[in-house]
Nucleic acid binder design. Structure first.
Lengths: 215, 215
DNA sequence: TCAGTAATTATTCAAGTGTATAGTTAGAAA
DNA sequence: TTTCTAACTATACACTTGAATAATTACTGA
């Protein structure tokens, strides 16, 4: 008696959901939101279309999950390299800034993904929530690094001032990141991290340029 | 013999095209790209759907025209207030920066419109062309103002340095603009122009703060 | 080994989309 | 007035989309 091979494989919900999220992300990155249809996502995940509705109550929910995943991943990729405890605060800040302005964080695919999602933020409250949360999460980490670097340098600033620094530096990084991703050929390699270090340094009054050139 | 009233009015192509573009923009601003269907646009412009295809060879072409219109409009709104010839270069730069960071330029609708379009930039070469053109147009104007302000202050910088300044200041303005539009409740009124002036000033080494408080 | 159930497939539906095309009409020109 | 054409309407087509539903199947655990 030959038992015919299984027609599909059952996966735990958590794993399958993540697989679907990853398929969604790669699809959006390649073809934009427009290309990320339920059918196409299912095909890429080697699954039939009905399964998506089984795991996510609607397509919007899947998109939200993908958005959340992508933003966390970018924040992590920017934060991780600066988490070496032995380095000075200034050097950690410099690494943070530079990491956000070179691949894989600063990259056409990433920016394109982000732009695709930004669209839906206005329509969908859940997306708005994720947007707000990831924005403040990123900015708070940056503010903490700035604060440590200033203390280390013996500079005293008011909380208000610190907040303004964080907003400004965040904007500068975001702006450079976005432009680097949306118009890659307009900048030479290494140019954006360099500009980022100089600008953030100028804004908060510290020279980050020396500290930022890490392998 | 009563002659029944005309069923529609003929407009010159140019006017009708602009009306369609404006209908498209208001629709996208309200409901996002997804809501801007051919039928809905036609309805808003008090026209039947077929007319769109008559004036624009495809929907994409209409979208491109709307994108171009919106970006030019934003650049103009940022540039115009700084064009008073009698003011000093520094003051004109300050006004430029501040104008871009308050309404109507810095505004949820504007940002949302921009984000909607950014999506299509990657897919459509024509959109990419418009993106590139409007980006450089804005940045070049900013670079010119920076250059004049530095010369006025007796500061000499290399072309390379000037280019870096323009990229950095542009990124800072864009970043603040975007965040102010995407998360309006996160900033107090007047906070963004103030942060913008301080940051741009810090980056290029001039004190713009004094010069930027215009009515 | 044999339910039981959660994961998965298979199929259908109703609504909406951009596009095409043929016919109609306003309004200038002769 | 009549003619002519660019602007406009009306209608239908071909296709895609997200969602719903019912039927199957892989795996767990008793």
């Amino acid at each position: 008696m030959t038992q015919n091979p299984p027609k599909f494989r059952r996966e735990p919900a958590k794993q399958r959901k993540e697989a679907l999220v990853l398929a969604t992300l790669s699809l959006i990155a390649e073809q934009g939101v427009r290309g990320a249809t339920v059918r196409e996502i299912a095909k890429r995940a080697n699954v039939t279309q009905g399964l998506i509705r089984y795991h996510f109550s609607s397509k919007e929910e899947l998109i939200s999950a993908a958005y959340s995943h992508h933003m966390s991943s970018m924040t992590d990729l920017t934060t991780a390299p600066s988490a070496k405890d032995n380095a000075s605060a200034k050097s950690r800040l410099a690494i943070f800034v530079a990491s956000g302005l070179k691949p894989p964080v600063c990259d056409p695919n990433s920016v394109s993904l982000w732009a695709s999602f930004l669209n839906k933020v206005r329509e969908d409250p859940q997306m708005q929530q994720i947007h707000k949360q990831t924005y403040f999460d990123f900015r708070d980490r940056l503010e903490a690094l700035i604060s440590e670097a200033l203390i280390e340098a013996g500079v005293v600033v008011s909380p208000q001032q610190l907040r303004h620094y964080a907003i400004a530096c965040n904007a500068t990084i975001d702006g450079l990141w976005m432009e680097g991703g949306a118009l890659p050929e307009a900048f030479e390699p290494g140019e954006l991290p360099e500009i980022g270090l100089r600008s953030v340094g100028a804004i908060i009054g510290l020279d980050l340029h020396e500290a930022g050139e890490q392998p």
